[in-house]
């Protein structure tokens, strides 16, 4: 099972600022290991962010997003105590969701 994401969601004026650090190898499928064998591709393809169930951001990623991806975005219509949930899906079909309260 993958490690949890680190998510910070902070209300700033009428906006909520979200910063996320995900834990993922983001293997491109182009790299070879010490024995010369190609390391199979394994990367996040989809990221969805919601606030109290309402979708605020969706993203499609390729293998060239950095390992242990960082993502920051901001949205209106959120307030302290709201639940911000981030979900990613990778090439192996694995999925992970983590949720924080807006602070």
């Amino acid at each position: 099972m993958s490690d949890p994401m680190r998510i910070r969601a902070v209300a700033n004026g009428d906006k909520v600022e979200v910063k996320i650090l995900m834990s993922h190898v983001m293997e491109t499928g182009q790299r070879k290991d010490a024995d010369g064998a190609v390391v199979p591709a394994h990367y996040i393809v989809k990221v969805v962010g919601t606030c109290n169930g309402r979708e605020v951001l969706s993203a499609d990623w390729g293998p060239s997003v950095s390992k242990n991806p960082y993502l920051s975005f901001r949205f209106k219509g959120g307030a302290k105590g709201d639940k911000v949930k981030i979900t990613w899906t990778d090439t192996a079909g694995e999925q992970r969701s983590d949720e924080v309260s807006v602070g």
Partner: peptide
């Protein structure tokens, strides 16, 4: 192609990330 981000109503057209 590295990434695409779709913004819903109310989300700032802003994004920060890291790419290879």
């Amino acid at each position: 192609m590295s990434a695409s981000f779709q913004f819903r109503e109310g989300t700032d057209p802003y994004v920060a990330t890291r790419v290879k």
